[in-house]
Simulated assay, not measured.
Amino acid sequence: MALRRSKRRATPVEGVEGDPGWAVELRGVRRQYGKGGAAVHALRGIDLRLPRGSFTAVMGPSGSGKSTFLQCAAGLDRPTDGSVRLGGTEITGMSENKLTELRRARLGFVFQAFNLLPSLTVEQNVVLPMRLAGRRPDHRRAEELLGQVGLAGKGRRRPGELSGGQQQRVAIARALVTRPDVVFADEPTGALDTTTAAEVLALLRNAVDGLGATVVMVTHDPGAAAYADQVLFLADGGIVDALTGATAGQIASRMTALTARPAAYAGMAA
Rank of each mutant, 00 (worst) to 15 (best):
228 A>P: 04
247 T>N: 04
202 A>S: 12
45 G>T: 15
200 V>Y: 03
224 A>M: 09
162 L>G: 04
130 M>H: 08
135 R>G: 01
242 A>L: 06
90 E>C: 04
84 V>R: 10
191 A>S: 15
178 T>P: 01
101 E>S: 11
19 D>E: 14
166 Q>P: 01
1 M>P: 12
236 D>Y: 05
148 Q>R: 15
99 L>E: 03
177 V>K: 04
53 G>Y: 07
240 V>W: 03
36 G>R: 04
253 S>C: 03
227 Y>W: 14
155 G>Y: 03
118 P>D: 11
199 E>V: 15
222 P>A: 11
260 A>P: 00
105 A>W: 02
264 A>H: 10
202 A>I: 02
42 A>T: 11
12 P>Q: 14
242 A>S: 14
43 L>T: 11
68 T>N: 05
17 E>Y: 00
148 Q>A: 15
20 P>W: 01
92 T>K: 05
64 S>I: 11
147 G>V: 05
107 L>M: 12
127 V>P: 00
59 M>R: 03
5 R>M: 12
27 R>G: 08
262 P>V: 13
208 V>T: 11
235 A>M: 04
182 V>N: 03
197 A>Y: 04
214 T>K: 02
180 P>Y: 02
62 S>E: 02
130 M>E: 15
107 L>C: 09
206 N>G: 14
123 E>G: 00
92 T>H: 12
75 G>T: 08
45 G>M: 11
97 N>E: 15
65 G>F: 08
50 L>V: 15
27 R>F: 05
24 V>K: 01
107 L>S: 01
78 R>T: 12
225 A>Y: 07
99 L>H: 06
241 D>L: 09
165 G>C: 07
245 G>E: 14
138 D>C: 13
58 V>I: 15
194 T>Y: 07
77 D>F: 02
196 T>L: 05
225 A>W: 00
239 I>K: 00
57 A>G: 14
73 A>K: 01
120 L>H: 02
77 D>P: 00
131 R>C: 06
193 D>R: 07
200 V>Q: 06
157 R>N: 04
201 L>Y: 09
127 V>D: 00
69 F>R: 07
204 L>A: 02
212 G>L: 09
131 R>L: 11
177 V>E: 10
112 Q>E: 11
263 A>C: 00
181 D>K: 01
162 L>I: 05
38 A>H: 11
12 P>L: 10
9 R>S: 06
233 F>Q: 12
179 R>D: 14
109 F>R: 05
71 Q>D: 13
220 H>R: 02
131 R>P: 00
226 A>T: 15
54 S>M: 07
83 S>Y: 10
23 A>W: 11
184 F>G: 10
40 V>W: 06
77 D>V: 10
233 F>P: 05
119 S>E: 15
81 D>Q: 14
251 I>K: 03
125 N>W: 06
134 G>V: 07
110 V>C: 10
231 V>L: 07
217 M>D: 08
242 A>I: 03
130 M>N: 08
8 R>Y: 09
105 A>M: 07
187 E>W: 01
66 K>I: 06
84 V>C: 08
109 F>K: 09
22 W>D: 10
188 P>W: 00
107 L>H: 01
